[in-house]
Design a binder for these strands. Structure first.
Lengths: 346, 346
DNA sequence: AAGAATTACGACAGCGCTGTCTTTAGTTTA
DNA sequence: TAAACTAAAGACAGCGCTGTCGTAATTCTT
């Protein structure tokens, strides 16, 4: 199958190359029957426009960059999150004939701003999508905004930042989980916080506080730990908490990795879960289904979240009215109740 | 920073645009001091060649496609593997100023051949890198070969297929693990096989057989199970094996997911690991460190494997002599001994 | 030191599209 | 039915590079 050019199509359809171009790009001012004729020839010749030529002539890149924090830098098992991001982004890009440039970063890297701005300049991307925690980095956002490149965020919590953002209800659902634990009879509930730079994780802590208040429970100071999202710190803090003379009966962790660490410590200390201790996580990584016991947690629909965010971005990139209603912007997470939570010991 | 063109650089350096082009592309026939002068100006003006223009003029795409089986289709936790693939590929691409097109596929999809050939034609990729199990799909390889597009494989086991391939020693290292179990005193060793279409997993079984033979042990028929790589089947087969009147004292699984399933069943059945049962996996997914007990397994250096494979591919794409020696083609996996294996019960 | 061989560099066309502008066909109005 | 308009289609330049080929500068011969 020899690759055909726009000229071939034009000639065979008896029109000018410009008309073919109009059809290909869905531009107006083409009569319906000529459009059909051209489309037929395109199909017949299996014509695909040369991406580089389009880009060069149109001064666009047809490229969307997906920026995310690279979990393999910490070698943790939540990489599934990234794959879901990519999948969602890929799907929308494909449907809009854009390409996707994946760009794993280290959100702690001090040169991040420079790295991203050179990405924008060198690759001349038409738009950027930022996943948390990169979407929390204020100076990064400002850097990008200064380049006038459209961007969208997957962002936790509040809606004030920018209109180009999809939001999660981390706070509300964390409150819900807390209330669920209270409902099970737990009164001594511990919380292991995550990285403070991760805004979503802060929101989860706020949600925990809400939930405790709503349940008429008060938070004991030494039941709250400052974790760093890692399995290891879940282990460590569990050891501390469970060695207390008056230990908590439930531990709610900011993410599944830490919850898994708690599970391990409980196992080692011979503390039965959920009989003597309830454990809850957040994220619903695939592993959560496979732990002993399996983990009660909270699931976020990462893929559809990403797809929404990217659709918003594409609207911006293509300068068209957004069809996404504000209601669609809030992506709701849900409790997933498994084996690691149960009635409070009496 | 206004974006500068090749003309700007040429003018400022007092040379023609062609000379600038030569410098940028590392072509010969440029005097050392003019090269330096041009490089200085490039730096000064922060010149970056327009990728689309290069592609159009050179009739190349500067694009490498990375094809892999999408683990999120099965929602399993080994997605870290993919991230490592991507990272390795990204690193080499960046250093060669190529872009990376990620292309997750379903290796069971019957339209895969067509999908890939249209990828090649539409995106006009300069080269493809296939990860297992896609690299095992004979008809896919033939399809790609027919397009004359350079490609490289990350391929298990034997070296006969093609020179453009990086190999793993799945078989040898599986034998090693088996011998290690034998060394610990185990005589009744079970094996849970993986997906038969996955060539690497077959190799692992062959290695198991080698190891048993080398240790003077014989394989009991009902100690060998045909798994499908999933956690669930690990659970299931463990239940079957451990319910035998004369159960195995060690179970070696083709991958960590299944080994993790075994661990769970043992936990549920109250069988102590490693005291009464040793369990070994393969892959060293991040989770393997976090199970209860942590998992003895085998680690493959996926990242460096990918980097090697891509370097070979780039040599082919750029039509230059490969600097990679045949010895580098064999990427060796290593045993990682953790808590799940121990002396055979006496 | 003059010619031959070689290396360094430049002029210019053209890669395959899209944007702009112009022309033609078609439709409406008076 | 002609003038005035609008919709549809075409002509053509040019996006920013690289490839080819021609010419100038340099080095190597003897």
């Amino acid at each position: 199958m020899p690759k055909s050019l726009i000229y071939d199509v034009a000639q065979r359809a008896g029109v000018s190359i410009k008309t073919v171009s109009r059809v290909v790009n869905n531009e107006p001012n083409v009569r319906e029957n000529t459009r059909e004729k051209v489309l037929a020839v395109i199909k017949e010749l299996n014509y695909r426009p040369n991406a580089s030529a389009r880009k060069l002539a149109s001064q666009k890149s047809y490229l969307i960059a997906l920026l995310y924090d690279d979990p393999s830098l910490y070698d943790n098992p939540s990489s599934n999150y990234v794959l879901n991001l990519q999948q969602g982004a890929l799907r929308i890009c494909k449907s809009e004939t854009y390409d996707l440039l994946i760009h794993p970063c280290d959100y702690r890297d001090k040169n991040l701003n420079q790295e991203v701005s050179s990405l924008i300049h060198n690759s001349r991307v038409d738009g950027l999508l930022l996943a948390p925690p990169l979407s929390d980095q204020k100076s990064l956002i400002e850097t990008i905004a200064a380049t006038d490149t459209p961007f969208a965020l997957i962002s936790p919590g509040n809606k004030t930042l920018t209109p180009l953002s999809v939001f999660t209800n981390d706070r509300e659902v964390s409150a819900e989980m807390t209330e669920y634990l209270a409902f099970l009879g737990h009164k001594k509930i511990a919380f292991i916080k995550g990285d403070p730079e991760h805004k979503a994780l802060q929101e989860r802590y706020s949600g925990f506080k809400d939930g405790m208040r709503n349940s008429g429970l008060k938070i004991e100071k030494n039941f709250v730990k400052n974790g760093d999202n890692s399995f290891g710190c879940g282990e460590l803090f569990a050891k501390q908490l469970l060695s207390l003379k008056n230990p908590p009966t439930a531990i709610f962790c900011c993410n599944d990795d830490m919850a898994n660490g708690v599970l391990r410590t409980a196992y080692k200390m011979g503390i039965k879960v959920p009989d003597s201790l309830s454990v809850a996580g957040f994220d619903d990584i695939p592993l959560a289904e496979q732990t002993n016991p399996s983990l009660t947690t909270i699931r976020q629909p990462v893929r559809s979240m990403t797809e929404h965010a990217l659709e918003i971005l594409m609207d911006k990139v293509k300068n068209r009215e957004s069809k996404i209603s504000p209601d669609d912007l809030l992506i709701k997470a849900k409790l997933v109740i498994r084996e690691s939570t149960g009635k409070a010991p009496s």
